[in-house]
Amino acid sequence: MPVVFGTAPIEDQDPADRKVNEPVLCYSYSEFVTAFGDSDDWESYTLCEFARSQFGLYGVAPVVFVNVYDPEVHTSGDPAVPDPAQVTSADIIGGVDETTGKLTGLELISEVFTRFRIVPGLICAPGWSEDPAVAIGMAAKATGINGLFKAMAIVDVPDSTVPNYTDVPGWKNDNNLTDPNMIVCWPKVKLGDEVFHMSTQVAGLIGDVDEQAGDVPYRSPSNNRLYANSAVAAGKEVWLGLEQANYLNGQGLITALNFVGGWKAWGNRTGCYPSITDPKDAFIPIRRFFSWHANTFILTYFQKVDWPITRRLIQTIIDSENIRLNGFRAMEIILGGRIVFSEDENPTTDLMDGIIRFHTYLTPPSPARQIVNTLEYDPAYLQNLFS
């Protein structure tokens, strides 16, 4: 489930009804419009872009939206009229009000599970994640939601600043977009007259692919269809060849490619690649599966917290998890997996202090990012002329 931060056209609503720095769960476009209004001015109202893509194109739900635009605060002119252009990256990053203790911006990610009992899977901020400070903040929040859960941040390289694909890897590295919990996108994509940040459509595509896979995130979004008929950077069409797209992939970027089967997302690597090559960190589907599996373990066994530490408790968890892992293996979601309770990892002092540690070994399949076929001329078959 994506949690999306941005701005929405709430000026015309009754001030008492305005949703400002408040997570709102939406299952449909109509619910979004009821909560936030609607606008074609996506540059000013970034949440409308995401709602259009998620509900109108990809048809996946739910989504949690967080609007940081406050018409009473973000104003300009004399006399003051509301102005969403006054919203800054600092509003998206947010913080904690010293007086009231109220959370704002990205800090509100911690309220999503307590409000809706749904664990965030993706963190998005189209239009705002082009600011490295916002992108890094998103990735930081993705690593420890509520001190327990993990998600992934989908961010964009600003195409207006970096319109040439050869400059994108350098900008990514210079601005430290190198986190394993980060998916880095370039450029934008266009459908008719509508221009979407790549991160917006990748979020929808991930939801679509997950749904096809039984809501288990083990497949890559790469080589799956985008709702686009062109790619654009700095307002101009971009036509990448396979070699150019693979160059970006090799630098830890996901892009758009019009090759076999129309416009598709192209790239399997997280932002940490190529400096980190560990499959559980460098491949998007493997990183997501590890995080999802860890989140599911927490949700499943949180009810066991504070039970007496007995052999029955330990064996219950081991048996349940091994059954689940064996099921994943049978469905080829993983190639194999097991969970153990090792004496070496559970010293007496920890057991006395009420801490028990399990260790899960698992191997999700890597995406087949290259399929190689070698052709060889075999003169032995010339003998068939004489058969």
Rank of each mutant, 00 (worst) to 15 (best):
A203H: 02
K172A: 13
V209W: 00
N67M: 03
T46D: 10
T143C: 07
E237W: 04
E111S: 14
I371W: 04
W186E: 06
N384S: 12
I276W: 00
Y58K: 09
V87L: 06
T296V: 03
P217I: 00
N384E: 12
S230F: 04
V96R: 12
S89L: 02
N258M: 06
T349C: 09
Y377A: 14
S28V: 08
E49H: 05
P126L: 02
V73N: 00
N175P: 06
T46W: 06
L385G: 11
L375Q: 12
G77Y: 11
S387Q: 10
F50T: 07
P180C: 05
T348N: 13
G336D: 08
P23T: 00
D193N: 06
S89M: 01
T255K: 04
N295A: 01
A380D: 13
K304N: 13
Q13A: 06
F5P: 03
V96S: 05
S30A: 13
S44T: 08
P187Y: 00
A125W: 04
T348Y: 12
V87E: 07
N258Y: 05
T349D: 14
L108Q: 10
G235T: 06
R287Q: 05
R225N: 14
A151Y: 01
W307S: 15
V119C: 06
L148S: 12
G337K: 00
G77L: 12
D40I: 11
T7C: 02
A51F: 03
G95F: 01
A142D: 02
T363P: 05
W186D: 11
I318T: 15
